[in-house]
Amino acid sequence: MEDIIEGTAYVLGDDIDTDQIIPAEHLVYSLSDPEEKKNYGKYALSGVPSAGAGLPDGGKSFVADGKFESDHKIIIGGKNFGCGSSREHAPACLKIAGIKAVVAESYARIFYRNSVDGGFFIPFETPASLIGTIRTGDRLVIDVAKGELTHHSGGDSKVWQLKPLGDVSEIIRAGDIFAYARKAGLIPSA
């Protein structure tokens, strides 16, 4: 787990479902094959309708045509992020595209759990909506231990306090559910 996560923001709205995160037609690629799985980066967030892609203006592709990784490292979302399917391809594709953290007001349960247990990125919750404040492309810095998000815009910067990671912080700190279970002696060490 990184102590400091730094990069530009990609801003989305409420109820971003797993079909928008990774449309079902792309769920055929191997997640084990290092070359084939790059396709998940290519198609990450390709199902988001144009008007909502990269707020506030929209019309901004998360991953540029012909690329497999996004220029952005942090996603800002609204309520009920990741609703819908249990497909782990959803958090996986964001990681493959280079995402290190998602900061949303709330999450759908399975997506949140998959993000943590699979160790894809840190799903932070924010007590205040950041959608109207942070613009796609703004520079952000997250201090993971302090749970602080610093938003740089123009010459100004503002610090937002994120919610504590709570019950799942030990799994996040270990890396994923397997690392956690090994550390806790629940399964034998590999």
Partner: peptide, 14 residues
Amino acid sequence: TGIGNTDAAFIMGT
């Protein structure tokens, strides 16, 4: 209830 691949793999082994 529904789960992802990682949780399913964990159950498969344990």
